[in-house]
Design a protein around this nucleic acid. Structure first.
Lengths: 126, 126
DNA sequence: CAACTGTACTAACCGTAATAGTACAGTTAC
DNA sequence: GTAACTGTACTATTACGGTTAGTACAGTTG
């Protein structure tokens, strides 16, 4: 379910959180779906239960999942809406990155071309 | 010359390196210009000389500055070219970010608009 | 009651950033 | 040559965050 790279500079708990939210956006995890239990996922990934709990508590505080003591953790009802709303705010990151690239001589065309490639409209030759 | 945030998650030595390269791209630091000495900058920024040295050795290995024992550190002759070349490779970062935003429902138009804003062509009303 | 769930807590280990202090070699100007 | 600067190297120490380890407690389910 998750692919963890223990050697990455990105903390394991953050990798889990990111991948969970990606699965939600892809529609592979739907509202109400149960997350693996803290202990079972720790066994599956070969990590410590505390690390999983940290990922889950992070996701819970973001509103992505709902932790229910005694029952489990479940995908939040409005998880997708929450994630899409956050993405709009992340346009600021895009602005900052482009600003930096512009300063280093990358042209507007190179950037817009990159955006188009993401949307499968790379060069217009098709 | 530099504005350091000791509370930032970004290491001090990296902040110095980043800001140095930004000053070069802005044309405020020209090839041959001397960098502040390790000791004087450490006093100015209130940091440890070792931290400055780490920033300088990082910049030296990137080809941004040239460290000359006994004389000082100077902006590399082709510093700007090096930085511009690196920027082209950083288009991959842009691609990854846009990919993530796309997944979260951000439209291509929202992204290209952001790019245009960076180049001062925000809404076409002017 | 038994087996599961999330949660809380302390202790320990490790890597990295940063500080502190010392030392050495090259350059420059007097 | 000496003094004052320059970069460089090295060890030791502190601090913090990520991770592991182990234990414990409360709620849920069958």
């Amino acid at each position: 379910m998750f692919q963890i790279d223990p050697l990455s500079r990105i903390p394991i708990y953050e990798q889990i959180a990111e991948q969970t939210e990606k699965l939600i956006l892809l529609g592979l995890l739907l509202p109400g779906d149960p997350m693996p239990s803290v202990r079972s996922l720790s066994v599956e990934l070969g990590t410590n239960p505390n690390t999983i709990q940290k990922a889950y508590s992070e996701l819970d505080s973001r509103g992505t999942i709902c932790s229910v003591p005694g029952k489990g953790c479940f995908i939040s009802k409005d998880a997708k809406a929450v994630l899409e709303k956050r993405a709009k705010q992340r346009l600021g990151q895009l602005y900052t990155l482009c600003e930096s690239l512009k300063l280093a001589g990358v042209t507007m065309e190179e950037m817009t071309d990159t955006v188009r490639q993401v949307f499968g409209k790379g060069d217009g030759n098709t």
